[in-house]
Amino acid sequence: MDFTHLFVELVLMPLIAFLVGLVMVLMLRKVRAKIERRIGPPLLQPLYDIVKLYSKKTQVSHGPMHEIAMMVALGGVIAMEVFLPVPGLNGLAEKGDLIVLIYLMMIPSLGLALGVGACANPNGSIGISRALTAMVAYDIPLMIVVAGVALFHGTTSLPEIIAAQQAGGMSTWGIVQTPVLALGGLIAAYAMLGKEPFEIYVAPAEIATGPMVEMSGKFMGTLFVMQCFQLYAVGVLYTTLFLGGGEYWISFLPKIFAVVFIPLAMTNVFPRYKTEDVLKWMWKWAGGFALAGLALVVMK
């Protein structure tokens, strides 16, 4: 692959991720509105929100660490996108594998922790400690799921995992071959989205939106953009591991939207758990399914 081609892919992949993520945010808000018996926002509202937030003057900055860390967090999610293969675009997926991706997935949380830590607001600090706790809660089942998938396919390369799943049509998809692992992965993906009942680190009524409490204007806009990338990344990762990835966008997009839609449709009927309940629940159920799935893979 020549450099120009790679460069185009590195620009295109985050751009597509952002645009699809915007539609996912719109879906999130529309679904929520429907369940809450509201009309919901117009089609371009997520875009308007980002433009509005980025056009605001930054009133309060808490020093260089606050600003650099937000860039690190945003950079982390953008870097993640170029390792996630999508139809026609492999980016760096052939150079890096699942292990690199898992590392990159932790960067946004750590970047946020650095940035919010610089704010010295107790609500933000509690929010970040909760976010890191939630990460421990869903990352352990996710690691087991990833290990199971890698063992099953005998590789950590995402393009190879996709190719193996696409070899025999739907019957070779991960969700058919390793259904227990796929269930554990879906629960972990739900928790990664940070929606109720796992929404412990935003918790407006408890810690006044936690990490977001000191984020105004452009900082808030950055968080909004990160949400777009995150929704997209979760959908693509799960589709890659269990739904056969995507040969064509026409078949790929419905899959990633379905993955994100399932948690979004359920989230509105739950209140949030307490922090320790998230840990208990995730380790018990997501961890339990992941371990059982791994055991089945090992026995095969």
């Binding site: 929520r32 809450e36 018996r37 009942p197 929404e199 009524a205 009927v269 949030r272």
Partner: peptide, 16 residues
């Protein structure tokens, strides 16, 4: 009461 636990559907239903 529901909103304090992060359940906003109930809040919108009640208000409606």
């Amino acid at each position: 009461h529901a909103a304090t636990m992060g359940m906003y559907s109930n809040m919108f239903w009640g208000v409606t």
